[in-house]
C-alpha cells in the first residue's frame, strides 16, 4: 500500500522529497564530521599527505591564475582612475580588491575545480570499487580516514593558498603598475599596506577557512554517496565542483554582509 502511494506521488512532490532527503543527509554528514573530528585516532599522516596533495600540487595553477588576475585587474582599473587623474591610487585599489574579495574567491573557485573534483572522483571511485567497504570490514573507520582528513586538509590549506594568491596577484599588479606608472616596489607595497586593515586580512582568512571546509566536505559528501558505477564517479566529481562553487558564492555574499556590518558599526 505504501509502495503504491509512493508511486502515485506527483513528480513535484517526489522532487521535493528527494531534495529534502538530500538536505537531511548532507546535514547528517556535516554533523558526523564535527563529531568525529575530535575523536582519536587522529590521522596526522593522512592529513599531511592530503595537505601536500591539495596545497603544494595546486601551486602552479594558483600562481598562474593569481598573477594573471593581478595584471588584468590592474589594467582594467586604470582607465577609470585615469579619468579622475587618480592612477596613483591603483596600488590601494588593487590591494583592497585582491585581499578582500578577488584572492579568496579566485583561489576557492580554482580549488573547487581542481581539488573538489579530485576528492569527489577519488572517494567516489573508492565507493564504487568497494574500497570503502573493505575499510569498514577491516574495522577501519573510512569516514575518519577519508572524509575528516581531506576536509581538515582543505580547511587548512585554502587560507595558505589565499595568502599566496594575494601575494602573487600583487606582484602581477606591481609589474603592470611599475611599467606604466614607474612606481617602485617599496612605494607600491607601502601603499598596499596603508590601504588594507587588520579586518581585511582577518576576514579574508576566516572566509578562506569556510571556503576550504566547503570544498572538502562537499567533495567528500558527493564522493561518499556516489553510486551507479563509473557514471556515478563522473557525476560525483561534477556535482562536487558545481555545489562547491555555488556555496562559495553564497558564503562570499554572507561574509560581505557580516564584514560590512562590523566595519561600519
Amino acid at each position: 500500500m505504501s509502495e503504491q502511494s509512493e508511486k502515485n506521488k506527483p513528480v513535484l512532490t517526489k522532487k521535493l522529497d528527494k531534495f529534502l532527503t538530500g538536505l537531511a543527509n548532507a546535514f547528517r554528514f556535516v554533523k558526523r564530521f564535527f563529531q568525529e573530528v575530535w575523536l582519536p585516532p587522529y590521522e596526522f599522516k593522512e592529513i599531511l599527505r592530503q595537505c601536500y596533495e591539495i596545497g603544494y600540487r595546486s601551486l602552479p595553477l594558483i600562481s598562474l591564475t593569481g598573477f594573471i588576475v593581478g595584471i588584468v585587474f590592474t589594467n582594467q582599473s586604470r582607465p577609470s582612475l585615469t579619468e579622475f587623474g587618480a592612477t596613483s591610487w591603483l596600488p590601494a585599489l588593487i590591494s583592497i580588491a585582491i585581499i578582500r574579495a578577488m584572492g579568496p574567491l579566485v583561489t576557492a573557485l580554482i580549488a573547487a575545480g581542481k581539488v573538489g573534483s579530485s576528492i569527489g572522483a577519488e572517494i567516489g571511485s573508492m565507493k564504487v570499487t568497494e574500497q570503502i567497504d573493505a575499510m569498514e570490514v577491516s574495522a577501519i573507520n573510512p569516514f575518519k580516514y577519508l572524509v575528516v582528513s581531506r576536509t581538515i586538509a582543505t580547511t587548512l590549506m585554502i587560507p595558505i593558498l589565499v595568502l599566496y594568491t594575494d601575494f602573487v596577484a600583487l606582484i602581477g599588479s606591481f609589474i603592470n603598475v611599475n611599467q606604466n606608472e614607474l612606481v617602485s616596489l617599496s612605494s607600491f607595497f607601502v601603499q598596499v599596506f596603508e590601504a588594507i586593515s587588520f579586518l581585511d586580512v582577518f576576514s579574508s582568512l576566516i572566509k578562506s577557512l569556510v571556503f576550504g571546509f566547503t570544498i572538502g566536505i562537499v567533495g567528500c559528501y558527493k564522493g561518499y554517496n556516489s553510486s551507479n558505477g563509473t557514471e556515478g564517479v563522473g557525476k560525483a566529481a561534477n556535482a562536487s565542483v558545481v555545489m562547491s562553487m555555488f556555496l562559495i558564492f553564497i558564503e562570499e555574499l554572507l561574509a560581505l554582509q557580516i564584514v560590512n556590518a562590523i566595519r561600519y558599526a
Binding site: S125, M126, T129, E130, Q131, D133, A134, V137
Partner: peptide, 12 residues
C-alpha cells in the same frame, strides 16, 4: 571475519 571482495577492492 575476513571478507574477500569480488573485485578485490585493493586500495588504488
Amino acid at each position: 571475519i575476513g571478507f574477500a571482495f569480488q573485485a578485490s577492492a585493493l586500495y588504488d
